[in-house]
Computed example of a mutant assay.
Amino acid sequence: MTRNTTYPRAYLAGPALAAADLGRALVALIAAGYLVTSATDADPADADGLVADVAADMDAARTADVVVTLPGAEDSPEAVYAALFGVPVLSLGDALAGVTR
């Protein structure tokens, strides 16, 4: 997969109850030039909907140029899955400092 170095695609992974931290990280990453996506904020009606939402989140992490983690999400399913496909997994601080690994 070709990585986008002009506007890198970042998947933002954070603890589910860290909405304020996720919001601040989202603003910082966008200001740094990242195109950012994060977990689906949905309330599926049934198990099939939940499976589809999780699959979409995992696919977004796998196809990102980088997965950026907040404290507590370093070993999140999205980060681990993306790493298996060679996607760099960075802390927010490293991503904002320009680390690429």
Rank of each mutant, 00 (worst) to 15 (best):
M58N: 03
T69F: 01
L84D: 15
R101L: 12
A47P: 00
A10V: 00
R3V: 03
T37H: 11
V80M: 12
A13I: 03
V51H: 13
A73M: 02
P15M: 12
L50S: 10
G86Q: 10
Y11F: 15
P77I: 07
Y7T: 12
A47H: 10
D65Y: 03
M1Q: 11
N4K: 02
M58Q: 11
T100A: 11
V27K: 14
D41P: 00
I30L: 09
S38G: 15
A16R: 06
L35M: 14
G93D: 15
Y11A: 00
A47G: 02
A19V: 10
D94T: 06
T6Q: 13
Y7K: 00
D41F: 11
V66C: 03
G23C: 08
L17V: 08
R62A: 15
R24D: 10
T37V: 13
A28W: 04
T69W: 06
A79G: 07
D94G: 00
R24Y: 05
R101G: 01
R101H: 09
G14W: 00
E74P: 04
G93K: 07
A97L: 10
R9V: 07
G72C: 11
S91K: 09
A83S: 15
T69D: 01
L12F: 08
L50F: 14
T37W: 09
V54D: 00
A18G: 09
D48R: 15
L26Y: 14
A82Y: 04
M58W: 00
V89N: 02
L29R: 05
S38I: 06
L35E: 14
A31D: 15
I30F: 00
V80A: 12
A32N: 08
L84P: 00
S91M: 10
V67L: 08
R24T: 12
S76P: 08
A97N: 12
L12G: 09
V27I: 15
D48L: 13
D75S: 13
G86Y: 10
D53F: 06
V89C: 01
L70F: 08
T100Y: 02
A47F: 13
L92Q: 08
R101A: 09
A31Q: 14
L90R: 13
L70S: 05
T5V: 09
E78C: 06
A95P: 02
T100S: 10
D21K: 11
R9F: 01
L22Q: 12
A28F: 02
G14E: 06
P71T: 11
A10Y: 01
R24H: 12
T40P: 02
V27C: 08
G86C: 09
E74T: 11
V54P: 00
S91D: 06
V27W: 01
L29Q: 07
Y7A: 12
A56M: 08
P88E: 04
V66N: 03
P88S: 06
A10Q: 04
A32F: 05
P8T: 00
V27G: 05
S91F: 06
L17A: 14
D75P: 00
L29A: 03
G49I: 09
R101Y: 07
G14I: 01
Y34K: 04
T63L: 09
V51D: 13
A16Q: 10
E74C: 03
L35Q: 14
A52K: 12
A42K: 12
